[in-house]
Amino acid sequence: MSLYHVLVVAQRTAATSELIAAMVRRHEQSPVRFRLLMPFPPATPRAEAQQQLAEALEAMRTRDLAVDGEVGFGQALEVVVEAWDPRRWDEIIVSTLPGPLSTWLQIDLPHRVARMTGVEVTHVVAQPPRRTPVGAPPAPHHGPGVLAPLAVMGWGGHHH
């Protein structure tokens, strides 16, 4: 069996369980080597981008995935175009946030990458990573909230 090379395009979803599970499933099909490509807006501090890349690679490697990575600065499609080499990559995985949260889905990135490269593109939808540690108390609630307009109806609000 030959070793496949899979380009993984992810940024905010790079260390999510959904993406890593998809990579593990792909790894179980045949021998594979992954390269994580993380596009960032040009204004992103390099140290921040490198830190996110390191954290994602560590999470992937704990699942025994053969993976290296790189950061690209620019629009996601431009970064993929720069990294794309048909002699090097056999397939691509694009990981995005769900529908309305994803700027990459707004520009139809998975389909555009597939059209541009002509290879199989697997689209993984992942939930946004939680920034608070597991077990931490929820953030305090400030302000009236989304139901404030209903307060005039007297439900559970201030009683006089």
Rank of each mutant, 00 (worst) to 15 (best):
A49S: 13
T13W: 00
M38D: 01
P31G: 05
L57A: 12
L36P: 08
P31Q: 07
L36Q: 07
A56R: 01
T16R: 07
Q51K: 13
V6T: 15
M38R: 03
L7I: 05
I20G: 05
A10F: 02
P45I: 11
E55K: 09
A49V: 10
L37W: 01
S17H: 00
M60C: 15
H27W: 06
L19E: 04
A54T: 12
E58D: 09
A10P: 01
R25D: 15
R33Y: 03
I20A: 04
L3A: 08
Q52Y: 08
L7S: 06
Q50L: 14
P42I: 13
A14V: 07
V9R: 02
A49L: 09
A49G: 14
A43L: 08
V32D: 02
E55I: 05
A15K: 03
M23D: 03
A21N: 15
E48Y: 13
L53V: 08
Q11W: 00
V9N: 04
S30E: 06
L37D: 03
H5M: 00
A59M: 06
A49H: 04
R26H: 12
A22N: 07
L53M: 08
A10H: 02
R12L: 10
A15R: 06
Y4S: 12
V6D: 03
S30F: 06
Q11M: 00
R35K: 09
